[in-house]
Design a protein around this nucleic acid. Structure first.
Lengths: 192, 192, 192, 192
DNA sequence: CATGAATGAGAGTTCATTCAT
DNA sequence: CATGAATGAACTCTCATTCAT
């Protein structure tokens, strides 16, 4: 089906070039459809972009949620959150960069607003997991859950970035462990 | 002098619109110089952008360095690092976003390479401060200093972002304290 | 039947948007048929347009003719011509604008030629009524009947236009009377 | 100068093709400038069109006004109005068609509104000449001056149209005389 | 030093038309 | 009879860059 081919191609092209340098011509070429077919299936470039980002957010939230269904200690929950996000970040580096960072300027105002909303929802999704854990287990430091969630995302994004430009510095497992340590040792209550 | 006027205007325009939506016309207009003057002073758009990002990095590194000249405990050093970065992030939100995030795709390859190098240098600058502290004071957890630095930057960037879209949630001082807690409680050794 | 639905929808859309801005998509949407159905029933956009214009001309000529079947004094005949044209012009303003004015440029050459022919026929139809009256009653000034007919159409078109953009200036009846006066006092012989 | 070349070319192209079929490429080609030069000098297609129509209206109003400076009997004034409009209509047939008819649909709403305003001003200009004459000389029939002006324009437009498609029917002088008769015998008071 | 008119490659988008079903 | 997904040529418009002055 054309729609799927287009989305697959668009992910590629947006990932490789960023929103602005990605051209509809290139996407059509990559999807092996005519340019008009893009506009038959999507209202325009920004809407196509939105669709993709939306799917990305939903994808990672679903994957995370599915894995947290069973009752798990918060430590394990955070580990899994980190693992899923690392999967996304490392498997499709540019795509995740788009999802988490390219939402700043230079996109049509209305679509931008929707995308920011999506990002907020993702953050609240993580925050709610933390909040639940904080209440139930009393293991988390008394920090605003939203800020904590923001910190997790920022740390993941930034460390992955570093990891990817230093491919031989440590293994994927090391990275996971390091990040877990950095995050949790600040989130778990410790005797000072 | 024209060069200064151009740089000031360019910071504004790049900040407000991102790299691609910023136009040389707009920059010339804001700088109150003719379009040709831009090309008299800078080889092109990407070079102008590079100049600005470079100045941004140098600025924050200088400000931080200057404040760390006196011998200070690591806790105080980190607090000051956070404070300077919050200053930069909150005072010129979009500019810092450019500096820390817009360096991904869609910029001319050669300039992009230089910018990534700058970002690496900034990260290493922070990492070296941490490294020194780790050796001298043995207060820091045994985590790769570069990853720790990346985590700090990511956390700052991400939490500021949240803070700015929820202006009334907490005060600037609260934010500073929260971020400090999140970062340090993971970086300082604690008895588990 | 699809054909009728299409024609009704097409009249609406052409009227509201003019030939070029009217899109086949919009017509199909309004007619509640699939786009392909348009091309099943009509060879293309210009032919569909031609069909509509043709029906418009035939409609007004029939209405006028029907009303002039009984032998009437020329004064009454002209009044009825005016009345029928005002009906058409005022009831479906844009449609009549299309019929009388949009036949100039920018339509496929072959269809355009046919449409101009239709306009000529309409003009000759009016002219023949005037000509008959001139011979039989000797009440009309010695002016070329075709020019006189052209003048009537031009006056109707132009005054309706004015009337429609000044809705409260005079009543429909006033307009009819004024136009009648303007036209006839130039067409009837008067002692100078 | 580029601006002049563009306007000259645009008049040609708009006249030959109507607003929608006229392409900016064609105008640039005809003007022997690059496409970008069009947009350097005019904000867009509709604005370019507006400029041209505006100049057309101003041109004919100026020419007419200049010729009516000396105090003339109304009969002579109307003759001159007719003459100037015939000049415009016959010399640049398509241009005048644009000016007087292509202002209906399918042009950007804001520009369309301005153009309609121009047409209204032109009509009021003619109406004011008639009004003055009516008051001063008491020679004009008691018909609303605006409708009378509309009638003149409509008659001129429509008869010229006919004249141009029947080039050999009568001479330009005949046309002028006929039109003058048609118009004035309805405007001058006559004993019925 | 500085200008700004001019450029042209390339972008996003529209839409009449086709054709396999 | 009717459909609607797919097409691709043509369109308007943007903008970094150049160069004669």
């Amino acid at each position: 089906m054309s729609k799927d081919k287009i989305i697959r191609a668009a992910i590629e092209v947006f990932s490789e070039n960023g929103y602005h340098r990605a051209s509809m011509d290139e996407i059509a070429l990559r999807a092996q459809v005519a340019k008009g077919t893009l506009y038959y299936n999507f209202p325009g470039k920004s809407q196509l972009f939105k669709t993709i980002v939306k799917e990305g957010f939903e994808n990672i939230m679903q994957r995370t949620q599915a894995d947290l269904n069973a009752p798990l200690p918060i430590k394990e929950q955070i580990l899994r959150i980190i693992r899923h996000h690392l999967d996304l970040f490392l498997e499709s580096r540019h795509f995740s960069h788009i999802v988490f960072n390219e939402l700043s300027n230079g996109i049509e105002q209305d679509v931008l607003e929707e995308l920011k909303q999506l990002r907020r929802e993702h953050l609240h999704f993580l925050a709610s997991i933390l909040e639940t854990a904080k209440c139930e287990e009393n293991l988390l430091r008394d920090v605003d859950a939203n800020l904590a969630a923001a910190s997790i995302i920022g740390t993941l994004e930034s460390t992955c970035n570093y990891y990817l430009s230093h491919p031989n510095a440590y293994s994927r497992d090391d990275l996971e462990r390091y990040v877990f340590t950095i995050i949790t040792q600040g989130l778990f209550i410790s005797i000072d």
